[in-house]
Amino acid sequence: MFCRLLRYDIRKGLISDYKKLLIVVAISVAFCIQFRWEYTSHFSSLSEASFGDIIFFAFSGMSEYTFSPDQPFLFPALWVLLLVLPMFFVLYYPFYDLLGFGKNVLIQVGRRRTWWLSKCAWTAVYIMTYFLIIYAVTAVFCIVMRIPLSTQISGETHEMVAMKGYNPMLNGEGHLVEFMGRMDLQLFVLPVISMVALALFQMMLSLIVSPIYSFIISVGILISSAYYMNPFLIGNHCMTQRSNLVVSNGMDIKNGVLLSLCMAVFSIVLGMIAFNRTDVLSQPLRDE
């Protein structure tokens, strides 16, 4: 039953609503082009660049911010955009599905727990698809631009992003570490897991407050993550510039994975308890 329900959710909430994901394709193309412009303005050619470089650049975020009266805080535009979008995309389907014939589905499923777990799995699948699209578009860009599909990060990109973003006067106690060139887990696993955890947290909150206000809380967590370098603010784990592979006091990948898993499990369990007690009334989230 669970697999059938998940298949139904994927068909209804992902495949039949594919148009939204075209925005992701457009933004991915945009940041690939931005990378090319910035890279070629620093270095003469793209010969040293790689697939991993572009992903490193896209999820670079910002280095640690320490309050200074003469240095205004500026949130990283691309990083925020890339992480706020999936939060918006996964926001309404689970609740929209409780309207109209979604109620029939819930009754057919027979158990609230199964319905909730399927929505959690759907959320994870959606976020994974979102990141897969980003990686796929970047890969296509690399093929077109004849950039190697390697995940090795070049010293040039490290210099362009991490060293340029790093300011010893403002970046607290951390210092740049000797860069090893690879950070596959940080680039391809941690952002996905962290965003799945945040999306599940948002879905759980939507049961308690409304989806819109839970979205504001998610955005608050992301903005606070940029402001404070704190491992408990999950957005920190999605910034390559704040990884301990880049900066000495940076985020540890293992801690990031562990925190994400804890947050996901907590959200799933609490959401399940809340949903078991929820009356399915008609909240007209979307009228047909």
């Binding site: 309050f67 805080f73 949130f75 979205f215 504001i216 955005v219 903005i223 940029a226 402001y227 404070y228």
Partner: peptide
């Protein structure tokens, strides 16, 4: 810009 709330306030204002 001493608190993240000033940034957050102007970030979520359109919504």
């Amino acid at each position: 810009w001493m608190t993240p709330f000033s940034t957050l306030f102007f970030f979520v204002f359109p919504l």
